[in-house]
Design a protein around this nucleic acid. Structure first.
Lengths: 144, 144
DNA sequence: TGTATTAAGGACAAAGTTATCTTTTATTAT
DNA sequence: ATAATAAAAGATAACTTTGTCCTTAATACA
């Protein structure tokens, strides 16, 4: 479905939400180890996620690292997709038709439409915090 | 969702199903033009699809080209995914976790599971013929 | 002030996907 | 047989994604 970069981004963000706080930041190594992703590549993804401290926050130097504000934790996980520029994967025509629409539908359009709506609903409904809680409560895992 | 190769494969197969018959084959150019795909790349995809004449059939020489047997037209479109080796994209964990399962679920597992089931249902239920009919009846298009 | 720590940023490498081009092979018709 | 036609097959190129490494910048603390 999504690129590896976006998969790592989703995992990293949820992981940081669960493990970190402003007084207990996570290092890049913590994150990469925690979600089972390649360290250097994860660094690149963290740069995107923490650009302008919009979604994930970061500070450099001793005791620096990554964390997520309580405010940011309330955001739906689609915010992560937007940040990774993969938001519109969900809208795309299954057959890859540029013009596919209600007026000029591909032969799967109307059935696939409801699936896309469900998918979008899931990503808009679930917050970062909620998914972090699932892990915190032992009901889910994010390690690879 | 799928690779460009698989998008072209789906479009090409449906297109051939609609336009061709054993006595009226389609040339590579017909197919590539019909679905709006790059000719040479489409040739490669047609090689995969018509390998062993399993899904799509092909013959060389004058009056040669591609067609689909009535029998093959009855196959569900998931057969195209299988042929392109992308069948398991549907099963994959959204977060890319290798171990994600009922016992060790990712935090989206149970919600995403129903979406995957819907998607699989769609691909297993719809036959190549059915989608070709949608186009034939003017209810859908496959041109780009 | 200097040193250690940690992320940011840039350059680059490897691998995979998409795409093209050329040659070969099979088939048909003359 | 020969010529024409059309797909198969192979080589290669362009581009994208994934991944690594090295240097720079920011921060904390002694």
């Amino acid at each position: 479905m999504f690129s590896k970069a976006t998969e790592y981004a989703l995992r990293a963000t949820i992981y940081i939400a669960q493990k970190s706080s402003i007084e207990n930041k996570l290092s890049l190594d913590d994150v990469a180890t925690g979600i089972g992703s390649p360290r250097a590549f994860t660094a690149k993804i963290m740069q995107i996620l923490s650009k302008d401290n919009k979604l994930v926050s970061s500070t450099r130097g001793p005791n620096g690292g990554f964390y997520i504000s309580d405010k940011a934790k309330e955001q739906p996980i689609i915010a992560i997709l937007k940040c990774m520029n993969e938001r519109d994967i969900i809208d795309k025509c299954v057959l890859g038709l540029k013009k596919c629409s209600e007026k000029e539908p591909c032969p799967l359009h109307f059935q696939y439409k409801t699936i896309k709506a469900d998918l979008l609903g899931l990503f808009e409904l679930k917050s970062i915090q909620q998914l972090a809680n699932e892990i915190e409560d032992g009901n889910a895992t994010i390690s690879n």
